[in-house]
């Protein structure tokens, strides 16, 4: 019972008790000196904790904004790099297509052998050709 009333007392700080529970607590508080002390002590503890104040070091906003700026710069660098790679890829692809077209126009074919000239080669001489001998 004693434990329950203490529990009720602590709860009363953080929760709206029902009318009958509130009445029970108030009644006990009127008569129980120990419970009054408990309430006083809990109130004191809560006040001590509530007064705790914490601050970041000065220029916190500047530090946050410079971090954001760094991240934006990194993202900017990555996107620029991506753009450069994209351009290189497009250029390379265009050149490849152009070469294929030229080969097609000159040899009337874009088969692999035609591209490297191996279709004109005798297969007996292939090993010699590959070893550049």
């Amino acid at each position: 019972m004693k434990h329950n009333i203490l529990k009720l007392l602590i709860r009363s700080f953080d929760k709206n008790l029902s009318i009958d529970k509130k009445q029970l607590l108030n009644k006990r508080l009127e008569s129980d000196k120990n419970l009054q002390n408990q309430k006083y002590e809990l109130n004191e503890v809560r006040e001590f904790i509530k007064k705790q104040d914490y601050q970041f070091k000065p220029f916190f906003e500047t530090r946050v904004m410079s971090k954001i700026e760094n991240i934006k710069n990194e993202l900017d660098f990555i996107s620029r790099l991506f753009l450069v790679y994209k351009r290189i890829f497009v250029f390379g692809f265009s050149v490849s297509c152009l070469i294929l077209i030229i080969f097609y126009l000159t040899g009337s074919s874009i088969i692999f052998d035609n591209l490297f000239g191996t279709n004109y080669m005798n297969t007996d001489n292939l090993s010699v050709f590959l070893m550049f001998d």
């Binding site: 602590i10 700080f13 006083y40 002590e41 809990l42 004191e44 503890v45 809560r46 001590f48 904790i49």
Partner: peptide
């Protein structure tokens, strides 16, 4: 709160 009350006894 019970733990804190115990820990901060001397402040009260």
């Amino acid at each position: 709160q019970i733990k804190l009350k115990e820990a901060l006894k001397k402040l009260i």
